[in-house]
Amino acid sequence: MNALETIGLEKRFGGIVPTNDVNLKVREGARHALIGPNGAGKTTLINLLTGVLKPSKGRVKLGGTDITNLKPHQRVARGISRTFQINQLFGELSPLEAIALVIGEREKLGTRFWRAFGSDEKIVGEAIALAKQFGLADVLGERTSSLPYGKQRQLEIALAIAGKPRLLLLDEPAAGVPEAERHEILETVAALPKDVTVLLIEHDMDIVFGFADRISVLVDGKLFVEGEPKEIENDPRVRAVYLGERTDD
């Protein structure tokens, strides 16, 4: 059973084709990684999956249902949750408020306008538990915008997980995080129950090989090759793509 499937997915901006006939299959419960050099179209693909962008062609299926025409918030309700490469947080809210907000929306209680926010013990309890998991317990009540970058990065991921997704899309979760803290971030993700499918978009090879059980390589908007980490690691074409890119840098 595939948690996620794209069929002939394509996106054009004028003459540029950042996503070109992508047929991606992500198995239920997989720890799937999508890698590729800069400009390969990884973020465009994520935006197509979450509905931020509309595809020019092709379909997106979640657990067998076609979701191509759903809006971003409707896809969230179907169980897709994501993080962003660059933090997208609510600067004015505290981590506790932000996480509780996500949980409330997940439970379809976001339209309650008479009940006080934070008066639901169950939601607050869950928010606190999650914050503790992500090392946010000591900054729960502070304004998000005043937090150090590492904490903000943790919150970025905590917000996505608070939505209890069936499919979690992580867009370079370790970007900008110092070497020492990277593993902390990914350990929490790796420890998620197996009924959560994770699609990790990443540039850093060490992280990918330590985490994924399946890897797809995206080059110039196309799926280049797919396989087990071992196969990818030893694939000369993949090496060529990456080596070629590194000399470019």
Binding site: R82, F84, Q88, F90, E92, L93, V102, G110, L159, A162
Partner: peptide, 16 residues
């Protein structure tokens, strides 16, 4: 407040 602060994130945590 969430929509005001960050509409992109708001819609990706499921807020219409």
């Amino acid at each position: 407040r969430a929509i005001k602060g960050n509409p992109l994130r708001a819609s990706s945590i499921g807020i219409p």
